[in-house]
């Protein structure tokens, strides 16, 4: 398939992948087999299979799943409606713009919004309900994470919906399919690739969120990301930190395989 010239032009990419993809992963695997004194050991892996870390993996998974699910539930209809609007690219732009703002700033803003004297509680009080601390709960954690991931989920879904040939939809309607059947049998299957890439860009980062777990969830939600941060910065146990990272990579590969496109593509 490649002639000689195109092989030559691939060279920079090969180098790039070797240095910035393969080498770092190899280093992580190498460090994961070192103990605190730099001796070779498998104890880090043994430590990972203790209840504390297994429970952490499960909770990370559960929260990442919830975040992805809610993001998808919000993002798909949004993207769908967007493609129906007159100035769809303008609307898409407006949805994407908030993602230009630094993540940390947005997170801090939520501390104020959800606070005891913040706007949300002021709104609740209008209805005669008692104000309550929304911050530092599961709810606030999932809400903020979903808010952050929505643009990343919308973009791929919007693109695949936008590329969808409208005549296929008309044909389905002509042949007597109801709106729901058209959606289920025609639109959704044809945009599933967009949904899959949306899930990839949401689920994988959601597994290793760490700033939000502290600022919004008050460390009541502990993800693998939190543990990696702690191992590297506080305990200075690079071995254990790398071991958790290795498992994160394994989980990510599994997710990629599960959501990967079968016919070529990016999988």
């Amino acid at each position: 398939m490649f002639n000689k010239a195109s092989k030559g032009s691939l060279f920079p990419y090969t180098i790039w992948i070797a240095f910035f993809v393969i080498a770092p992963i190899a280093l992580i695997v190498y460090y994961s087999m070192l103990d605190l004194n730099g001796n070779f050991t498998f104890n880090n892996y043994k430590a990972f299979f203790t209840p504390v870390y297994l429970k952490m993996t499960l909770t990370s998974f559960w929260y990442a799943f919830l975040i992805t699910l809610f993001t998808l539930i919000i993002a798909y209809p949004t993207a769908f409606l967007l493609t129906k609007t007159k100035h769809k690219h303008l609307w898409l732009m407006l949805i994407i713009i908030p993602s230009w703002i630094n993540l940390l700033l947005k997170t801090y803003a939520f501390i104020g919004i959800f606070g005891l004297y913040g706007p949300v509680n002021a709104f609740i009080e209008v209805f005669g309900l008692e104000s309550k601390q929304i911050l530092f709960t599961d709810f606030s954690f999932i809400f903020v994470s979903v808010y952050i991931f929505i643009p990343f989920m919308i973009i791929p879904i919007f693109n695949s919906l936008d590329k969808l040939n409208p005549t296929l939809v008309y044909a389905a309607r002509d042949l007597g399919a109801s709106s729901f059947t058209t959606f289920r049998r025609v639109i959704f299957p044809l945009t599933i690739d967009g949904v899959k890439s949306g899930i990839q860009v949401t689920f994988i980062p959601a597994l290793s969120l760490f700033m939000i777990t502290r600022l919004i969830a008050g460390n009541k939600v502990i993800t693998l990301g939190t543990a990696i941060e702690q191992q590297f910065l506080v305990s200075q146990n690079w071995g254990m930190g790398s071991t958790i990272a290795v498992f994160l990579i394994i989980i990510m590969v599994v997710i990629m395989l599960l959501t990967g496109q079968k016919k070529g593509g990016r999988a």
Partner: peptide
């Protein structure tokens, strides 16, 4: 020392996990 600092952190993590 790093070994005991690590242990303190492991126990702290265990405590944090109990908060859920």
């Amino acid at each position: 020392g790093l070994e005991w600092l690590g242990k303190y952190n492991e126990y702290f993590l265990e405590f944090k996990m109990s908060l859920q």
